[in-house]
Write a protein that binds this DNA or RNA. Structure first.
Lengths: 175, 175
DNA sequence: TATTGTTATACTCTATAACTATA
DNA sequence: TATAGTTATAGAGTATAACAATA
């Protein structure tokens, strides 16, 4: 019979001092070792923890230029695909059309990107980086690379390739 | 001289039809291949995409029992560490004390967990699963395992271990 | 009928400051 | 002086529905 959570809860309700552990009370702080159990073997949990740590470092690294991860990805994709539409951009980055509007307003306000009429389809706009936007993107990319090196500094090039490939497989298998 | 974003933007502003690509206009939908550029080599981006896909599947799988990822992790940790305090729980899972309050209120309302006075420190509560909470957690864990198998179905056991180990190393190196 | 861009809106998650009661 | 739990609040990020213009 497996040691289920139901059985553990049963034991706990009979024997409440199971909470105390080995250490006993410290002078001014309870420093108890908390057991995460099987959580460390759940991809979702481990991926989430890594993602939070990576984004925190990215945000801190690009804070001086006031660029968030989503803004960086949008500028990068516009730079790589000049003239694409908002719908195409949204599909590529899995950002809903409605949520792109504010982002692009902000990027236009900062003269990093611009919307121009799309010849042949008056519903859409063609998106471009401004000259200034292109120059700034190069700066952002340098900072992003610095962040990237830090995030992967304990991985060999092959390990990094492996990590990216495994993650991509997991994503594709769920799509 | 590298082909920087600045130079690309310069070309684009001189030659706007760079946007058109090879395909030409389709009958009723523009289906242009969008190039994500170096984004696919950024750990942050790839980890983020995988995390979103995994969480979507987790949420869908546990929707019938109305349990979100954070709730599952909280129940699991309480079950594994009966009698721990909210502060300890928050530190273990990197959830701010303030944000735990609502979650625990909800779990108590649903009779899955309970707060009891902590003997020896009247500021704190000791957290336990109820008997019902323990039984339900076993059901949640079964669903979570089903999700886990689906998320990792294209990975060998060794590949999964590798993935988790690499992610943990990335997180630790940024801490 | 379908798609594009837009507005409005809501819900989740996360973060901070301030309060109280205890240590 | 520091910590625990709480409240209130604000900011992201994400989701949906509806609308006008256009295809």
């Amino acid at each position: 019979m497996p040691d289920t959570a139901a059985r553990a809860a049963e034991r706990a309700s009979l024997k409440d001092d199971a909470a105390e552990g080995a250490g006993g009370a410290q002078p001014h702080q309870r420093r108890r070792k908390i057991d995460l159990g099987v959580l460390d073997e759940h991809v979702g949990y481990v991926v989430r923890r890594a993602q939070i740590a990576i984004f925190k470092d990215f945000i801190r690294t690009l804070a001086p230029v006031d660029i968030r991860p989503a803004q960086f990805s949008v500028l990068l994709v516009i730079g790589q695909n000049p003239g694409l539409t908002q719908a195409e951009l949204g599909r590529a980055l899995a950002i809903k059309r409605a949520n792109l509007v504010g982002m692009l307003n902000e990027l236009e306000r900062r003269k990093l990107a611009r919307r121009t009429p799309l010849p042949g389809d008056r519903r859409s706009y063609a998106l471009y980086l401004t000259r200034h936007g292109g120059e700034m993107l190069d700066r952002y990319a340098k900072l992003a690379l610095e962040h990237e090196k830090r995030a992967c500094r304990t991985l060999s090039p092959e390990e990094k390739r492996t990590l990216l490939a495994l993650l991509a497989r997991v994503e594709r298998s769920l799509a």
